[in-house]
């Protein structure tokens, strides 16, 4: 699997939803969570930096590697929900 250089993307919590659909996780055909769609009006869409097809390596510094889908999506959801930060940091990568 060719992973291109990771990029840190900071998405501000500027809307009521993050607005991404994520597929994949450990023990599936897509072992790292991949952005499947981006919903109009969500934070990801408004900030304009995330792209469909990118994989998410880390969320707020927490590695998603080896996490199953349910746990990885829980990490993302909790990063969005926490009031400690008004943004979510994604370490993302393009896949060849």
């Amino acid at each position: 699997m060719g992973v291109m250089e990771p990029t840190l993307v900071r998405v501000p919590k500027c809307a009521s939803t993050l607005g991404i659909a994520v597929e994949g996780g450990a023990n599936t055909r897509q072992p790292l969570p991949r952005i499947a769609t981006i919903q109009k009006g969500g934070c990801a869409h408004i900030s304009g930096q995330l792209r469909v097809g990118q994989v998410i390596l880390e969320v707020n510094g927490v590695s998603l590697k080896g996490m199953e889908h349910r746990d990885a999506t829980r990490v993302i959801a909790e990063a969005f929900k926490t009031k400690d930060k008004d943004y979510v940091d994604f370490l993302i990568a393009e896949i060849n």
């Binding site: 991404i20 994520v22 597929e23 499947a36 889908h69 999506t73």
Partner: peptide, 15 residues
């Protein structure tokens, strides 16, 4: 490779 082919597809979660 064979193992990869037998892995199930993932569900999709909207966040």
């Amino acid at each position: 490779r064979e193992k990869r082919l037998t892995l199930p597809p993932s569900e999709i979660t909207l966040l």
